[in-house]
Design a protein around this nucleic acid. Structure first.
Lengths: 212, 212
DNA sequence: ACTGTTGCGGAAGACCCCTTCCACTTTAGG
DNA sequence: CCTAAAGTGGAAGGGGTCTTCCGCAACAGT
C-alpha cells in the first residue's frame, strides 16, 4: 500500500546522521540543532521532521557507538589476562571523551526511553561485571571494587576533558593511571561505601531539555 | 569633596552579593543574572551597575571563599602529620562542590584579570607545594606526585557532582578515597607523565561569556 | 511525459537572556 | 524642609535558539 520511500529523503537522513556524529563528537550533544543542519547541508525543518526531539537524534547517532562499547566489554571479559583486560577496558572507556565528546555525555547519562541505547549500555555493564568478577577471583583487583564504580570513574575522567586539548588528554591519561593503581589489589585500605546503585543512576537521569 | 556614599546603595550592593553567593552556590556561576537580581530583591539595572560583567560579580562573591581556601592550605602545610594534612586538605577541596557549586567552578577556572582571586589561588598553590614537599620527604606521598595534579584531582572529583544529591556526594567521597590511596607512597608503579603546567592551566582559561 | 504525493527550505513567531536607556524616587547636605 | 545629585526599576532593543508553518520542488508510479 505504502509507496517506496523516496531516495533523497533516505539520503538526507543519512547526511544528518553523519553531520550529527561529527558535530556532537566535537562539541557535545547540546550544540545548536541549526549547526547540525548546516553541516549536513539540509534545512532545519528536514532535521526536525526526522528527529523531532534532540534525544531522538542523539539516540540514532550513538546507537552504533554504544554497541561498540558493549562489544568491547565482551571482548575484555573473554581476555585470558584479567588484569590486562580490566586495565585495557577502563582505559578504552575513559579515553572516549578524548575522541568523542558527545558519546562521553551519552555514556554518563541515563536516556530513559531510548531502548537501543539503554539495552546496549546494560549489556556492557553485564560484561563488565563478569570482567570484575574474574579479576577479583584472580586476586588482582581489590575485593571492595564495585562494578558500579564504573560510572563514577567515567564521570571523574570525563570531568577532566573540558576541552579537547593535548594537555587535558595527557592529564586524563595520568588520572587514569592513578585510578588503575588505586584499583589494584595490593595495599588497599577501606573505602567510603558506595551509594545505592539505584540512587546513583537516578542522579544521572536524562532531563528533556537540560544542559551538560 | 565627594559626598558620603548613600546608605541604600551600600545595602543593595550587599544584598546582591548575598544573593549571588546563594544562587551561585546552588546553581553555578552561569545562572541568569536576572535570577540573582530577583533573589536580591533589586532591579537588574542595579545589579549591572554594581557589577558590569558577570566576572565582576563572581570575583566579588568568591573572594572570601578563595581566601579561606588559601588559609586552609596554610594550616595544612603547618600540620605536624604530613599525611593526615595532605589527606585532609584534598578532602576539603574536593568536597567543595558538595557545598558550593559556583566556587567549585571558580576553583577550576583561571580568571585572568581577577587580581584578588588569582592572588589567593596562587597562595594556596604555594602552600600546597610546601605540603607536598613535606609529605614526600616523610616518605608518605609517592615521589612522582606533582602539585599540579591538584587541578586534575579537582576536575575529576568535581565531574562527579553533576547535581547536589546525596548519592553523588557519596560517590564523590568514594572517589576521593580511591585517589588518596593512589597517592600513597606504597606500591607505586610509573604514571603517565603530567602535561606541562603551562598548557594545563591554559586549558582552564576563562572565557568572557562562555558556557560549561 | 504527467500527476499526485511526499519532502524540502526558509521565514515567522515565541522564548530566554543580556544590555541600554530613561523617567522616577530616595538620599545627603544645607 | 528643600534641592541637587545619586541611585533605582522596568521597559525596550538586540542576539540567539527552538518550533511551526507554508509555498514550492522533486520524486515514484503510470
Amino acid at each position: 500500500m505504502s509507496r517506496q520511500p523516496r531516495a533523497d529523503a533516505v539520503r538526507n537522513r543519512e547526511r544528518v546522521l553523519a553531520a550529527a556524529a561529527e558535530v556532537f563528537g566535537e562539541s557535545g550533544i547540546d550544540v545548536p540543532m541549526s549547526e547540525v543542519a548546516r553541516r549536513a547541508g539540509v534545512g532545519i525543518a528536514t532535521l526536525i521532521r526526522n528527529f523531532p526531539a534532540r534525544a531522538d537524534l542523539v539516540e540514532a547517532t550513538f546507537g552504533a557507538a554504544m554497541t561498540d562499547y558493549a562489544d568491547t566489554a565482551t571482548r575484555a571479559a573473554a581476555d585470558p589476562d584479567p588484569w590486562a583486560a580490566f586495565c585495557g577496558f577502563i582505559e578504552y572507556v575513559c579515553r572516549i571523551p578524548q575522541r568523542d565528546r558527545g558519546f562521553a555525555q551519552v555514556l554518563t547519562t541515563m536516556f530513559t526511553g531510548a531502548e537501543l541505547l539503554e539495552a546496549q549500555r546494560q549489556r556492557g555493564l553485564r560484561e563488565f561485571i563478569r570482567l570484575v568478577r574474574r579479576a577479583k577471583a584472580a586476586g588482582v583487583l581489590r575485593a571492595d571494587f564495585s562494578p558500579h564504580d564504573l560510572p563514577l570513574i567515567l564521570l571523574a575522567t570525563g570531568g577532566v576533558m573540558r576541552t579537547q586539548t593535548p594537555a587535558l588528554a595527557a592529564a586524563q591519561d595520568r588520572l587514569i593511571g592513578y585510578l588503575l593503581q588505586a584499583c589494584a589489589a595490593s595495599n588497599t585500605k577501606p573505602l567510603p561505601g558506595a551509594p545505592p546503585p539505584r540512587d546513583l543512576y537516578a542522579a544521572l537521569e536524562f532531563r528533556r531539555g537540560g544542559q551538560s
